[in-house]
Amino acid sequence: MQETRLDTARIRAARRVIDPMFLDTPLYRCEALEPHIGCAVSVKLETANPVRSFKARGTEVVASGLADRGPSAVVCASAGNLGQALAWSGRGRGIDVTVVASRSAPAAKLDRIRALGARLELVDGDFDMARERAAAVARYDGIRLVEDSLDIETCEGAATIGLELVGAAPSFDTVPFDTVLIALGGGALATGVGHVVKALAPEVEVVCVQPLGAPAMTRSWRQRRVVTTGSTRTIADGVAGRRPIPAVLDDLLVVADDAVLVREASIVAGMRLLLDHAGLVVEPSAALGLAAILEDRDRFAGRHVVTIVCGGNVDMDAYRRWVNAAPR
């Protein structure tokens, strides 16, 4: 495999600084889903933790390094999940955390950030506007800017999921699945898990999934150069970026076998399937993997697919509207 910014030895070391409650999350074959999607599917459940997403794996690595250097303060931009995770990891280590988010971010995520003790600053506009403001706060206050996907700790923390996926096999020679479907936003999850899978189980296909309404990283992967978009339009707020980071794209080009775009109706249908047949309430980003299967059943027929259920922070009023409108 070509080199990425990630290092497998550092990823293994990251497990030693991540709170165990975020590690070894459930991985199980969900046979109840299979008649509805036409292939074998296993679920990696990243919502069974205090922040209900995979993001704390990365923020634990960030916060551990900061705590080793004494009192500190950090700022990040967040669509909601990173902010919660950084607030949780910082609170336990005496780190002052500021989170910049869009006013349009889901209220449930914003409320949880506040409840975890972080200072929350809201801006007009989308996530990329929040990124600009967070960078300005970091410069003005002279504090650490935590930038998801660009900061290697966030990628290598997420990559520990890949170790657990491959390590679940009886040996590193074979794995029980042949495809892993990964939600694609800024790229930390995709590049992290993809790096480990390609390093330890290169025969497994790594497929990244993004909404049609937020296609910047997928278009960039396809054209092998950074492609920005003027706006986003998707319910999957956690992956709704407009400006890919060049270094992250470089890593994605190494580890991803494919990147696909899916419709909003398919995302909602995936959420409904996870509720009805797996008993899981998930945010839209977590249903992207199932959406990809629903849109291309022939491609995945006969395969054993792993989908990473990456987050469960969702506004329940919106969730009820979406799933109640989805056909059963």
Score class of each variant (00 low, 15 high):
247 A>L: 06
282 V>P: 02
243 R>W: 06
253 L>Y: 14
247 A>F: 05
278 A>N: 06
290 L>V: 15
246 P>K: 01
261 L>E: 15
262 V>Y: 02
280 L>H: 04
305 V>D: 02
294 L>R: 05
279 G>H: 10
259 A>F: 15
303 R>C: 02
252 L>H: 11
255 V>M: 14
256 A>R: 11
288 L>G: 02
274 L>K: 00
282 V>I: 09
251 D>F: 13
252 L>Y: 05
299 R>F: 12
278 A>K: 05
289 G>E: 08
298 D>H: 01
261 L>W: 02
257 D>G: 14
283 E>I: 03
279 G>P: 02
293 I>V: 15
284 P>S: 08
281 V>K: 05
298 D>L: 01
278 A>G: 04
288 L>S: 04
286 A>G: 01
293 I>N: 02
270 G>E: 03
272 R>C: 05
303 R>H: 11
266 S>F: 01
305 V>N: 09
244 P>G: 07
275 L>E: 03
288 L>H: 05
262 V>G: 04
283 E>M: 03
275 L>S: 07
262 V>D: 08
255 V>L: 11
255 V>Q: 13
252 L>P: 01
276 D>F: 03
248 V>C: 06
249 L>W: 11
292 A>V: 05
258 D>A: 15
261 L>N: 13
257 D>R: 10
268 V>N: 08
273 L>Q: 08
285 S>K: 03
305 V>Q: 00
285 S>T: 15
253 L>P: 12
268 V>D: 11
264 E>F: 12
268 V>G: 12
296 D>N: 14
267 I>P: 13
292 A>C: 09
270 G>F: 10
303 R>A: 03
296 D>S: 13
246 P>Q: 09
298 D>K: 04
247 A>E: 07
273 L>Y: 00
295 E>R: 07
253 L>V: 15
248 V>T: 15
260 V>E: 09
292 A>Q: 05
299 R>L: 13
287 A>D: 08
253 L>T: 13
273 L>E: 04
295 E>H: 11
252 L>A: 15
272 R>W: 07
275 L>Q: 05
249 L>K: 03
300 F>K: 04
269 A>N: 03
258 D>M: 11
243 R>G: 00
255 V>C: 14
279 G>D: 07
304 H>A: 00
296 D>M: 00
265 A>V: 03
262 V>W: 10
249 L>F: 12
268 V>C: 06
302 G>Y: 06
301 A>P: 00
293 I>H: 10
297 R>H: 14
259 A>S: 15
269 A>Q: 05
249 L>R: 11
289 G>K: 08
260 V>Y: 07
304 H>L: 06
291 A>D: 11
249 L>S: 12
287 A>W: 12
280 L>M: 15
251 D>N: 15
261 L>C: 14
248 V>G: 12
274 L>Y: 02
245 I>M: 05
284 P>Y: 07
245 I>D: 04
300 F>T: 06
294 L>Q: 00
258 D>I: 13
299 R>A: 10
302 G>D: 10
248 V>P: 07
277 H>P: 01
300 F>N: 07
305 V>A: 04
294 L>P: 01
288 L>A: 09
260 V>G: 10
301 A>E: 08
291 A>M: 13
281 V>W: 04
288 L>I: 03
258 D>C: 14
279 G>R: 05
273 L>G: 03
278 A>P: 06
248 V>A: 01
268 V>L: 08
265 A>L: 01
269 A>T: 07
251 D>R: 09
244 P>H: 11
276 D>H: 01
